[in-house]
């Protein structure tokens, strides 16, 4: 791994991602937790740019920071007295150890033997012929590719919207 501009950017974005994630799982104050989540997901967007997936990076910022963050902050405010809760964690050390073991399993069991050992067989990495947003648009609506998942995604979104409205609205009725 030679040391250049991209490597520096990769290290910075990885630290942002992982640091933000640690902030999310350890924060006491949930509003700050939401901000940490945004920091972490912003780091993921940066990593996507490094992977030349600029469309997905913009979507990441748009969907997560623009919409899901707002939804989370609304939900945090709607379920109040969160900061004063004393019961924040359960069995911290057991869970730290089990998550750690999981990471070691990933690293030693899958990533190292499969992806490091076979690194030489990878395709050369260039930007030539990279699939573009236009290709994605063609694929999403062409009959032989993703038109069915595309419509099902629309159906799923509609179902989620109606379902969430029904659930949240019931709560509102009882609240009044």
């Amino acid at each position: 791994m030679e040391f250049n501009f991209i490597t520096v950017a990769f290290i910075v974005f990885s630290l942002i991602t992982l640091g933000g994630a640690i902030g999310v799982v350890t924060c006491i104050n949930l509003f700050r937790g939401t901000i940490w989540l945004m920091v972490s997901l912003f780091g993921v967007a940066g990593l996507m740019v490094l992977l030349s997936a600029e469309f997905l990076a913009a979507v990441q910022v748009l969907v997560y920071i623009g919409a899901i963050a707002i939804l989370f902050t609304f939900a945090v405010m709607l379920t109040r007295s969160i900061t004063s809760d004393k019961m924040r964690f359960t069995r911290v050390w057991v869970n730290v150890i089990s998550a750690g073991i999981l990471f070691v399993l990933f690293a030693l069991g899958v990533i190292y033997p499969v992806w490091v050992a076979n690194a030489a067989t990878h395709f050369p990495v260039t930007d030539a012929g990279l699939a573009t947003t236009t290709d994605l648009g063609v694929a999403l609506v062409s009959g032989s590719q993703f038109v069915l998942p595309f419509e099902v995604a629309g159906l799923l979104l509609t179902a989620a919207m109606i379902g969430a409205i029904v659930i949240a609205r019931d709560a509102d009725d009882e609240g009044n």
Binding site: F31, I35, M38, E54, F55, A58, V59, V61, L62, I65, G66, A67, A69, I70, T73, T132, T133
Partner: peptide, 25 residues
Amino acid sequence: DLEIGALYFVAVASLGTLAIMTAGW
């Protein structure tokens, strides 16, 4: 001249919304 210029504009503008929320809180 980003290939996703229009989407970039929307994505960046949504940061402003988060700033207002944060300021209020």
